[in-house]
């Protein structure tokens, strides 16, 4: 069939182009401009060349924060993805339980990030928080304010509580889209529970898992609000992730040049890792 060419259709994408230009392209251009200059306010800028990039790349503060970010993302993904799949597999597929489970799963996603941070900050306090007080009553030493391990555990548990639901909902959507004929065929063949999961459910969930994986990776790699509210980057710098470091540099110190250079490096790392994940997962999908 011959294609119909209508160049007026280009006007249909114009609103999106304008939106992307104002929300992404213009801010990104501004950040690039700031990254090669220095400013002391008053809209006055002085050429700095690549100095800020060299400064960021040679600072241990940047590499330490990057390592913390990578470690946090690895831990989060290795918990939330299997846990999300497990919960989705065990959710009811029909009946009254479906809307109940879906609503319960959606609740954490509806809570704003700073509120989640505040909830867990209070929840973990030894004097008034349910978690902190209970652990203290049981004789378990727990204090996320001055213990690095406790601070990390609190952030990880908080993130798992907040975001596993997203993985669950995506996996559940993938699972309910599998036609019954697949399960019937597996039953006739006498397939085990594991085989059904490995050869029917997992391949059918692959696309939604890719989305869940990418969303959770990018989100956990860019995490800011919750750790800022709960630990403020402490104890010491133990939970200072790149985003917190970036805000401290840009707003705390008003070093806009180094902050712009740091944010560009940060952006490139996220872009590279997301592209690698996406390519690896879509390529293996195509090969299958």
């Amino acid at each position: 069939m011959e294609k119909t060419w209508n160049n007026k259709a280009w006007f249909m994408v114009l609103p999106v182009l304008v939106l992307v230009a104002f929300s992404a392209v213009i801010p990104l251009m501004t950040v690039v401009n700031y990254s090669v200059q220095d400013t002391f306010g008053n809209n006055e800028f002085f050429w700095a060349g690549t100095d800020w990039f060299i400064q960021v790349l040679h600072s241990s503060r940047f590499w330490d924060a990057l390592q913390r970010n990578l470690l946090f993302s690895v831990i989060i993904l290795s918990i939330e993805i299997p846990l999300g799949i497990l919960i989705a597999l065990n959710m009811p597929k029909k009946g009254f339980g479906v809307p109940v489970c879906l609503i319960l799963m959606s609740l954490p996603l509806l809570i704003p990030w700073n509120v989640v941070g505040t909830i867990w900050q209070v929840f973990g306090r030894v004097d008034i928080g349910l978690l902190g007080y209970t652990l203290a009553a049981l004789g378990i030493p727990y204090n996320y304010v001055n213990n690095v391990f406790d601070a990390w555990v609190t952030l990880i548990v908080m993130d798992v509580w907040h975001w596993t639901s997203l993985v669950v909902l995506l996996c559940y959507a993938g699972l309910v889209s599998i036609p019954d004929a697949y399960y019937q065929a597996a039953k006739i063949d006498g397939a085990s529970r594991w085989s059904v999961f490995r050869y029917i459910q997992l391949p059918k969930m692959k696309r939604v898992l890719l989305i869940a994986f990418l969303l959770r990776f990018m989100d956990s790699f860019m995490i800011y609000t919750e750790p800022f509210v709960i630990t403020g980057g402490g104890p010491g710098n133990s939970t200072t992730f790149l985003s917190i470091d970036l805000v401290k540099t840009a707003i705390g110190q008003f070093d806009l040049g180094p902050a712009a250079a740091l944010s560009l490096i940060y952006f490139l790392i996220i872009l590279l890792l997301s592209w690698i994940f996406y390519t690896v997962m879509t390529t293996s999908d195509a090969q299958n």
């Binding site: 251009m29 501004t30 401009n33 700031y34 090669v36 200059q37 400013t39 809209n43 800028f45």
Partner: peptide
């Protein structure tokens, strides 16, 4: 405010 320079 976008602080344009010739190289950028």
């Amino acid at each position: 405010w976008m602080a344009w320079t010739l190289p950028t």
